[in-house]
Design a protein around this nucleic acid. Structure first.
Length: 688
DNA sequence: CTAGGGTTAG
């Protein structure tokens, strides 16, 4: 092996810097402990470092004098000097490295006692407890680790047996093996080893990582019965577990308790709190925690910054993400992969595509090697903002990088992009490429394909794709069903029955409601509304609006305006829509942002009725009336609601005109509005 | 890295 300057600095006890050389390890028996560390002097050769007994040293009073008694020349080093501590560190590092190597070979060893014990025999007889801890702490194979534990328990007189149990629990946690962890805990008790806070926090975080937050809570609650009082770390783990269990209140309660009990709350716990607030959608809560943390004099760490960036991304507040990023840099931190990923997501969600792509260029310019996750984050961002060509470029660069390969996420994003931009054959090609790479389509891919075929009017392919889901052993989720529902809004009447069959399979109650519409079935008054309300009430809030919008669109397409109005009413009652109509002394407004076209037309219809009533009642009109459609363009089409709505207003001869200085607003005056309403009423009378 | 917490995704 080539001798590098650093390898020549090793103790003479090592043959080379190949630390997995167990023969030399055996001879070594690890010199760091005991008297060697505490000897008065440390010697150094120009080619070798040696930590030896003082007897080797000819003149301890002159630390700089060169000794000539041995073959190599030695230099005196004062044990208190930085050099000596450097030497100790070097020696420690090399010993540590060899133990890590041993842990690795134990990980890949057969999980049989004989093989394991053979590997460990290389440690020799003078094994110390600390070595056992280092080895286990670096292992990741649960099965072999349990045998390693057994070996040390047989060979060593352990002064603190709880420690070796605790590091073994860490290994079990790495393999997410709560069953074995619980068994090991029982074994501890049987052997009379008393568990401590480390034991509990490790088991609790194991439960949390196994996605069993209830189990975590169970363990936390039994902690006092073992004579333990939770400390700051245990609180921190539990705060996280409550957060994961969706029990935000309990998480915050615990934080309050930790605070009143004057535990030192550190940056990791604050990062956890920020994540919990972020997941709960309380983004101001995130910022408050950040401020509170700074006020308490706790220095933020990367986890804090990254969770904040992530939260601001979810909140669609890219400007705040920028501020936090600037804070982070000015405090001397370097962005991590997590930072880049959070920023890309934050910019993507806010449609700041240029900023997101700038991050990509920055990473490349720095010569950093992108990981699959970062590539996938970029592609997901492209899908979010509709950057079709960029996505293809990034995908090509990813494949050319040679450092990472596309996975199912990669293909999924590409299929989404192709589907949303109506490129059916490209989506199909990507699907085939994905399957050739060994990935089955997952629910996200199939959701995109349903959208893709739906948009292209290929109803039979939608049905085929729908059936593929159950063929693959998957069941529809709310998004998948929502996309199917959305396809119905774009499908000609004669094809709708093919899709209601699917919808009934995916969600019988929703299927029933849609069937009432499609079959134009007359039912007792209130029945339709009752069933529709039930459906909308039981889906999660993040799909409620999409479902409601789609149902209204289907009504409008089928000319069932009354039911459309009923649905809009349900939407208002359930707070799916808020403040559609508003009145101030100077302006009456109709707020249509985030409504589908059908829902917007329905809301306009209701508003006009209400204006008529106001007119009949002789109410005083304000000087200005306005409709806000929002100016957001749809990501995969040129026209937003504003563009489509404008032509509808013309059809109605409505006097509303787009305000030149307020994008997305259509305004009219009191006089024009009243004369328009009156002329419509006159027409209705004539028609009647 | 040094017996416990978090850290890159629809």
């Amino acid at each position: 092996m080539a001798s590098t300057p650093s390898s020549t600095l090793l103790s003479p006890l090592y043959e080379s810097n190949t630390f997995c050389n167990f023969t030399s390890l055996q001879k070594l028996s690890f010199p760091l402990n005991n008297k060697l560390l505490h000897s008065k002097s440390v010697t150094l050769t120009t080619t070798h470092v040696s930590l030896q007994e003082q007897s080797d040293i000819s003149n301890p009073t002159n630390p700089r004098k060169t000794a000539s008694s041995s073959k190599s020349s030695y230099i005196w080093v004062n044990p208190q000097s930085p050099k000596a501590s450097q030497l100790r560190q070097k020696s420690y590092d090399s010993r540590y490295a060899s133990l890590v190597k041993m842990a690795e070979s134990l990980d890949s060893c057969n999980p049989v006692e004989e093989d394991i014990f053979n590997v460990l025999a290389a440690l020799g007889d003078k094994v110390v407890e600390q070595d056992a801890v280092v080895i286990l702490n670096n292992m990741s194979n649960a099965e072999t680790a349990l045998l390693v534990l057994k070996y040390f328990q047989q060979r060593l007189k352990l002064s603190k047996e709880v420690i070796i149990y605790n590091v073994t629990l860490k290994v079990l946690r790495k393999s997410k093996d709560l069953d074995r962890a619980e068994k090991l805990f029982d074994e501890m008790l049987q052997r009379g080893v008393k568990p401590d806070n480390v034991t509990f926090s490790t088991i609790i975080s194991c439960a949390r990582q196994c996605n069993l937050p209830e189990k975590a809570i169970e363990w936390f609650e039994k902690l006092p019965s073992f004579g333990c009082e939770p400390d700051d770390v245990t609180y921190s783990v539990m705060i996280d577990s409550y957060g994961k269990a969706g029990n935000v209140d309990m998480a915050l309660n615990l934080y309050d308790r930790a605070r009143t009990e004057k535990w030192r709350i550190d940056a990791v716990t604050f990062a956890t709190l920020i994540r919990i607030y972020g997941a709960a959608g309380n983004f101001d809560g995130c910022l408050n925690v950040y401020e509170e943390m700074k006020a308490l004099g706790v220095r933020p760490n990367m986890a804090v910054y990254n969770s904040l960036l992530d939260a601001m991304g979810r909140a669609k507040r890219p400007w705040q993400a920028k501020n936090i990023y600037a804070d982070m840099i000015s405090n001397g931190f370097q962005p991590s992969w997590g930072t880049y990923a959070s920023l890309i997501r934050a910019y993507g969600r806010a449609r700041y595509s240029e900023d997101a792509l700038k991050i990509y260029r920055e990473v490349k310019e720095k010569g950093l090697e992108l990981s699959v996750v970062l590539y996938n984050t970029l592609l997901a961002m492209c899908a979010d903002v509709g950057l079709t060509d960029e996505a293809v470029n990034i995908f090509e660069e990813m494949k050319a990088s040679g450092t990472c390969q596309p996975d199912s996420w990669t293909y999924s994003s590409l299929i989404t992009i192709n589907s949303c931009s109506g490129k059916v054959s490209e989506a199909e090609t990507t699907l085939n490429e994905m399957m050739e790479a060994g990935f089955d389509p997952n629910i996200f891919v199939l959701t995109s394909l349903i959208q893709c075929y739906g948009k292209a009017g290929r109803t039979d392919d939608v049905v085929r794709t729908f059936d593929r889901l159950s063929d693959l052993g998957l069941s529809p989720d709310e998004r998948f069903t929502g996309c199917l529902l959305n396809v119905l809004t774009q499908t000609p009447k004669e094809d709708l029955h093919k899709l209601t069959v699917c919808l009934e399979k995916a969600n019988p109650k929703l299927g029933y409601v849609v069937k009432l519409l499609v079959d134009e079935e007359a039912v007792e008054e209130g029945i339709f509304k009752k069933h529709a309300a039930e459906i909308l009430d039981c889906v999660t809030t993040d799909v409620q609006k999409a479902y409601c919008n789609c149902l209204i669109d289907i009504c409008v397409n089928l000319n069932q305006l009354e039911r459309a109005c009923e649905l809009l009413d349900i939407g208002l009652t359930l707070n799916i829509y808020a403040d559609i109509q508003s009145r101030t002394a100077t302006q009456w407004s109709l707020q249509l942002k985030s409504l589908s076209l059908g829902a917007a037309l329905t809301a306009l219809h209701i508003w006009m009725n209400d204006l008529n009533k106001a007119l009949e009642n002789g109410e005083e009109f304000p000087s200005l009336l306005g409709i806000n459609t929002g100016h957001g363009k749809h990501k995969y089409s040129e026209k937003g609601l504003a563009g489509v709505f404008e032509s509808h207003l013309k059809e109605l001869n409505a006097p509303f005109h787009e305000a030149p200085d307020k994008a997305g607003w259509f305004l009219t005056t009191k006089v024009a509005a009243i004369s328009w309403l009156e002329s419509r009423r006159a027409q209705e009378v004539v028609a009647a």
